[in-house]
Nucleic acid binder design. Structure first.
Lengths: 116, 116
DNA sequence: GAAACATTCAACCGAATGGTTGACAGCTGG
DNA sequence: CCAGCTGTCAACCATTCGGTTGAATGTTTC
């Protein structure tokens, strides 16, 4: 299933909006783990973690792969790139805002440096 | 209401997980707008847009401010910074992925070498 | 092939989400 | 004051979400 960029951002940001899922990503970034290993730290059922993995997988943030009787979970970090690019676009705004604050604090109400 | 970093990331990523809301952020980044102006491009009721603004506001991504009988919507870009930092941490992983190792893991279809 | 283990599926639950409509509230101008 | 505009609130609806439990599906081992 090919997703549009928009749909992909929807699913990636949604996947990231849950603490448990962000934590799982951190865990598997460090090292590939089986589903059981991923689940162990969390105070919820294995089935619940499996659902979180479904969300992460359908956002293409992880991949599951059979290895013997286990299944290993692997990070697919490149999926995060578009999200990071989306956010990076706003960097100029928060920088600009810091500039504005700075100017305000310094009492610069008249001269505007960056025109012309 | 003071939010923990974790809760803030939850609410920011959740706010960003909807196309309409991301689009609204783009709109108000360019220029402050009234609620009505924000709503006009969208094929949904004003009340629906107002709800989206509630989500963005409680994530502290925008602020509403009364100006006469209108209400202007202003971007609060600095709220995005922690989210961008969270994502930036993964940059090393997607860079690393350009390495042969990951190519190998993605591309291999035959024998698995390490189970002697 | 049956036991034992790893993981998923299915059904269910309560709460939240994204939308609607209609009533209400705040401000401006005659 | 009230007419008209701007925006929100409240109630409602269908769908999704995050969790549970118990049954089912691999997979390995004996």
């Amino acid at each position: 299933m090919v997703k549009s960029n928009t749909a992909r951002l929807d699913s990636v940001f949604h996947a990231l909006s849950d603490t448990t899922r962000r934590s799982i990503l951190r865990d598997v970034a460090r090292k590939e783990k089986t589903v059981g290993e991923v689940a162990r730290p969390y105070r919820m059922s294995l089935a619940a973690v499996s659902k979180h993995l479904n969300v992460l997988e359908s956002a293409e943030l992880i991949a599951r792969e059979r290895r013997g009787s286990f299944q290993i979970v692997r990070l697919k970090p490149q999926t995060l790139k578009p999200a990071e690019e989306w956010l990076a676009w706003y960097e100029k705004f928060w920088n600009r805002q810091l500039d504005a604050l700075q100017q305000y604090l310094e009492g610069e109400t008249d001269g505007n440096a960056d025109n012309s």
